[in-house]
Structures are given as C-alpha cells and as structure tokens.
Design a protein around this nucleic acid. Sequence first.
DNA 1: GCCAATTCCTACTAAATTTCTATGTTATCC
DNA 2: GGATAACATAGAAATTTAGTAGGAATTGGC
Lengths: 136, 136
Amino acid sequence: MIISTKTEYAVRALVEIGKQAEEKPISISDICRKADLPQKYIEQIFRKLKQHRIVESIHGSKGGYMLAKPEKKISLNDIMNAVEENYNAEYCDGNPEHHSHCIGLPCGFHDLWNEIRDHMVDYLKEIKLDYIISRF
Amino acid sequence: MIISTKTEYAVRALVEIGKQAEEKPISISDICRKADLPQKYIEQIFRKLKQHRIVESIHGSKGGYMLAKPEKKISLNDIMNAVEENYNAEYCDGNPEHHSHCIGLPCGFHDLWNEIRDHMVDYLKEIKLDYIISRF
DNA sequence: GCCAATTCCTACTAAATTTCTATGTTATCC
DNA sequence: GGATAACATAGAAATTTAGTAGGAATTGGC
C-alpha cells in the first residue's frame, strides 16, 4: 500500500484540526479521542509536523496544536515529507561501491526510480488538505 | 522509497533476459551471476512472474526462463502486481468493524487512498520493459 | 540408466522497518 | 501547587521484507 498508517494518522489528525471552526488550539488527547488514534504515537508525529511548519503549538494547560498555514497550502506531499523517514532520499548516488550493480554514472535504474518518485511527488503536491477535508 | 528491493531485483533480472538477443532460455544462475543477485530469492520471484504470465520456463537441464510476451507489453505495473504482496488490495472495505474510524460507506479516506493508488497504477502501466531496457 | 543442470516448492531465519508504549521533563494556566 | 498539556528519548512489539536451507521433480546429454 502506498499510504502508510503513519501518514494516514497524520492526515486524520490534521482533518480533525481542520474541522475545528474556532481559531483555538486543540490538544492531542482531544484529537485522539475524537479520531480514535493512539495518543503517544500521534505526539511523535505532531512533533515532526511542527518541525516542518505544518502545525504550530501552544505549551502548557489549555495548549495544543493549530495549523500553521491555510488548509489549501498544506499538501499530502508536505505531510508525507514531514512524517515519513527518508521520503526525499535519492535512491542511490550511482556509486558502484555502494550498489555493486551500478556500472557507472548515471545509473539507469536509479534515474528511473527517481523519475517515478518525482512523478509521485508532483502528484501528491496537488492534493491539498482543504480538498481532503471537503470530502467529508 | 516507492520501489522495493524485490521489484528492483525483478526488473534487473528481466532486463538481463531482454538483453539476451537469442530466443533461448536463460537460467537463474546465469542471470544472478551477470546481475549480481541472490539466486534463491530470484527463484521465488520468478515463480511469481511465471504465475502472472510475464515469463515462461523450460524445465530441466539447458532449461531456464524467457519472456512470455514482447518487452513492450510488459509494464512495471505488471511486474509489481506479480511480485508485491497485496499490491491490488483495496485499502479498506469501509466496514467500521474492520476499521473503527470508518463512519460509513463510502469512507472518504479510503476512497482517497484508492484514488491515489489508481493514479499510481495508471502511471506505472505506461512504463514498459522496452523503455527500461532502452535506457542502458 | 545415470548424472548434471535446472525449475519448482516449502519452511524457516534474519534483518529492517513500522507501530506503539513507557517514563519521564518542561511549560503554562488557574 | 496542581492539573494539563507539549516535548523528548528509549525501547518493546508487531509486521514486513529480504534472504537461506534443503530438497523434489524434470529434462538433456552421455
């Protein structure tokens, strides 16, 4: 499956924030209760989302998370890039010492894999959070 | 990474068959020697490729594998479909008893994930083995 | 008929990754 | 000061992926 649990959880949690009409922060525990998600896991995920400026947080009691920018400026690509490990990794540097089958530069396979990844990234950039929310 | 080792191995092995000018079978051991691949693993992969009519085999001594159809009729999608587990799996059937967050049918998330998967499948259908081979 | 080379089959092991929990610390509101 | 929340790190548990072991069945060539 193309979409991992981690990405799905991130999206479901962000949708929960998006559904919140008011401009006040919502806590992880609220999100998880409403969307039936594992709280500690979501905490980790949200720290990554914050590092990538997708959400911002308010510390302490009455604190929580808010979207850091408008829903239409947050794409599925942004979310996956924040949340998935080495989402951006080049498949290979073409160095035969790392991959014995690379006969040299450029390596045809890895150019192809990167081409496929780039296609996917471009597509996912067009799927915005507002579109996702609108489907509910 | 979108492309797994298993798919990469399958492609590299199929390219090796494609490079073979003559219309005679090539053995797994030859393929693995030339492309530096783990033989037993490739054997498994080729059995799946055979089940999906991507290659055909000749038993016994002097036996081996050949492409079952022209290179331009074998797509990356065909290969991944043969080789990757539940490549075709619907993300979810929308049944809340299986996924507690599905509030009903249709389930917006899973329709979206399937939409993304379908986009990817359509793209991968257009990447044919002859194109891949031509890149070397 | 026998041997070598090969496909074919199943079960298992090992490694890596992903998912999730435990146990805190720090910050803020009341 | 207590409650509630974000923030942090380590690691357990589960799942998936990659690879190995050992052999059975099939065929060509001698």
